[in-house]
Write a protein that binds this DNA or RNA. Sequence first.
DNA 1: ACCTGAACACCGTTCAAGT
DNA 2: ACCTGAACACCGTTCAAGT
Lengths: 230, 230
Amino acid sequence: MALRKSDVVDAALRFLDIEGLDQLTMRKLGASLNVHGGALYRHFPNKEALLDAVADKIVQDMGDPLPDSPWTDQVEILGNRLRTALLSHRDGARVVAGTFAPGVNTIVGSDMAVQVLCRAGLPPAQAGWVTFALFYYVLGHTIEEQAQRQLPSDNNWRVRNERLDVQVSPQFAVALDSLWDTDPAERFQYGLRVFVEGLSHLAAPSAQQTRPASGDATREAPGKRGNLAR
Amino acid sequence: MALRKSDVVDAALRFLDIEGLDQLTMRKLGASLNVHGGALYRHFPNKEALLDAVADKIVQDMGDPLPDSPWTDQVEILGNRLRTALLSHRDGARVVAGTFAPGVNTIVGSDMAVQVLCRAGLPPAQAGWVTFALFYYVLGHTIEEQAQRQLPSDNNWRVRNERLDVQVSPQFAVALDSLWDTDPAERFQYGLRVFVEGLSHLAAPSAQQTRPASGDATREAPGKRGNLAR
DNA sequence: ACCTGAACACCGTTCAAGT
DNA sequence: ACCTGAACACCGTTCAAGT
């Protein structure tokens, strides 16, 4: 039979979809390949390395060529691409979040994001920081999506919140409800757009400096955007 | 002696600072309280509930009153406050990220963020989405900060990247270096500002509509998602 | 009510021995 | 080279029994 690394990764992905990350143990994964758990250590030094390989396979399409669109669209495409990749396997987001050592696909994808952001006018260092920021947003959002998807419907924030008997503002109550009533994709899109909107103002020299680029946040003169308060 | 819940939480926080999350087991935590591991189940139904309580204690100051500043500053203050709270205990970010059931302090803090964003002009639902987006960013950034802090210096992305022998762009190489050369606080601040900048343009009706406020992102660039549609 | 002692049902990982 | 079988050193959790 002679198992290959890729066989183990494929089996792990299949196992993930059926049983979920919490059930994925070396013994059970081995059993799904008609092999003892210990045998997997011929192919991976430990479970972490195995999951790193699984994570990198999950994000394998991130580096696909981008359409020749405005950079704002390209950033949104990358964000959506990552979300789609994470959602395409059960607990995919948690697996990728737990990655310790980035793999080839992760690096290629990040590189692509950095380049898009540089073309948008960001210095390379800042492009890197922003790439991570976007990554964190997508990961966090998708982890929550996948957690919510597997939750019994009587076990949500709203209910918990009531049980804890905390006084919350009416706005917060509405906000909480919207987490359960609104399509996750729409929520995701909104956050992504906020980010891109901020970038388009900080990255473009012409539109820059509506606020100081650095310095103490508390220093700024009040009232600049006071007209928004209602 | 008669242990209280708060004694256990305090001991867990102390244990965390000394040994880290990976070493925190029920047996060892019990031992640090001169008690067997099983005894902790008189105070918490399971380890998860215990860690939830620890997480909520970590973010206990989030709801402190905010200065009467512009909402942009208030958002940045909340972000910095959360980061500071997470950094104040070893593996604090990972503990909070693993929270299943939000506690009182988490709810109060979120509520505060939602209200700030509503005053900025966002509808409550969107304010909630944005609050989560900010939360994800801070968590992700801080988890990475704390991971980096505990890493041997020969074990970073740059080195890994070379070992994997992936071709990366010169911009990406610079970006990677900056992750190790730049003060994490500065990187954090930058991402926060991008976010706030985006908000200040999406939340204010007057400054809005530099891009469509809603709609399908795919609409602007036809065919771009063909590779994602599985 | 709170804790001990001991067990149950697992883990990840290692390694001599087989093929 | 790859896998088995069995062990090692742990886990979280439960529960009768003690105090």
